[in-house]
Design a protein around this nucleic acid. Sequence first.
RNA 1: GAGGGUGUAGCUCAGUGGUAGAGCUCCGGAUUGUGGCUCCGGUGGUCGAGGGUUCAAUCCCCUUCACUCUCCCCA
Length: 453
Amino acid sequence: MSFIQPRTMPGVMELLPLEQVAFQRMLDTIRRNYERFGFLPVETPVMEFTKVLLTKSGGETERQVYLVHHSGSLKQDEKPELALRFDLTVPLARYVAEHERKLNFPFRRYQIQRVYRGERAQRGRFREFYQCDIDVIGKDKLDLYYDAEIPAVIYNLFRELNFGKFTIHMNHRKLLAGFFAYLGIEEAEQQMLVLREVDKIDKRGREKVMETLLAEPFSLSSATVEKLMQFLETGNGRSNSETLAALREWDIQEPRWLEGLSELEQVFHQLARLDVPDDYLRLNLAIARGLDYYTGMVYETLLDDHLKLGSVCSGGRYENLAGHYTKSKLPGVGISIGASRLFFQLMDAGLVNLGQNIVKVLVTQMDDSLADDYLQITAALRAGGINTLLHVEGGKFQKQLKAADRAGIRFALIMGGSEKEQGVVTVKDLSKGEQHQFARDAMVEGINGLING
RNA sequence: GAGGGUGUAGCUCAGUGGUAGAGCUCCGGAUUGUGGCUCCGGUGGUCGAGGGUUCAAUCCCCUUCACUCUCCCCA
């Protein structure tokens, strides 16, 4: 008998139970913070009509879309009617356009679901992964306040996620566009290419990037490159307010520049009022976040002690969410956390605590003649809201403790003949090696005290 | 889409032209009511698959599959 090799397709993240517990915790924290800021949950189907998904078509995304058909449906040479979503923004656009009349604007939604991309397998890169998005969508216009609120969400969320110090890097697309126009680089396409090059400074080094920009196909003048670098490095060694002041000194009259600069000033002003400490924020003129549809503020969040992970949360402002589906103009601002990649990388870096089981107590079986008591104790603990497991298999007591320890169960409840006589139970805290005794009728309170204390 | 790398035990990897080892894991034990440490013992591999050279291939050659990395792009 030959077996089929049990394996998953590459590019999916399948976890062991305790890892899953840790991952779930992370998602819970994200959800809790999103809700605290008044975002409402939305879920959309994994599949959408291909027509709906591939509106903007072309380029990288289309190449990565999984098309779907069921076994009876496929007519040869016909593009399947359905496809798997590759992000949550396009489904959101469809959702908002479809339910426009029933939604309250500004519409705030959060969405934590999996998306699918036909990626080449690579470390930390998935074909199926979680995105945790929030967006605020306005009708016709959307107050700049929301652009400030976004970093406030990030700040509160990542504080609670507790991955150490982090920095929210911010930039403004209009400021960039204005500056490029000032440099004489008018075409958006060309700006994108230059920005992409600039984005590689960390990887390739400043000199290399400058060389590239001077050479074909960019062929920028050395004066232009000089100015560009000077601009991009404005924030280096400066506080955010100093950077803003330094930008003012350029004295550029390009309208987009002025608008971007003024918006940045307002956003930083409001962020201070929202109690987001300035050292968690950084006006970084060099970040440009790929996605072309951003038109205003852009955000990237980096963990200070793990810069290699890259941005763990990014997003920005866009002019019109659902132009393909409705006449209404729907500007928005939002962010996305790639939870699967983030979790995977944190696990890789040893930053995920995998020791904690959601099961808190293992009721051990010291004495077979007390089996009925163990059943009652187990039921009582569960009734008291404590996640409890009964080690019905019994066996050597040592092995029972070992089983609890290995499973990451913190407490072992022990009751042998002597406890039975005294009407008490012994609770061993395996994480500390301490033992406590509680009266049978006070054990729930006692254990809860240990869990919370 | 372009270019590299690697396939030997559950995991991480050694190794030799004469059909294989280590560490970790796992299982059992070290006086029968106390885990993690230590010690002892044990399970476990058609050496990715197919073909070729050879008396003989895990090792050499060819093919293939799988995995993986970089670029691209992104979460």
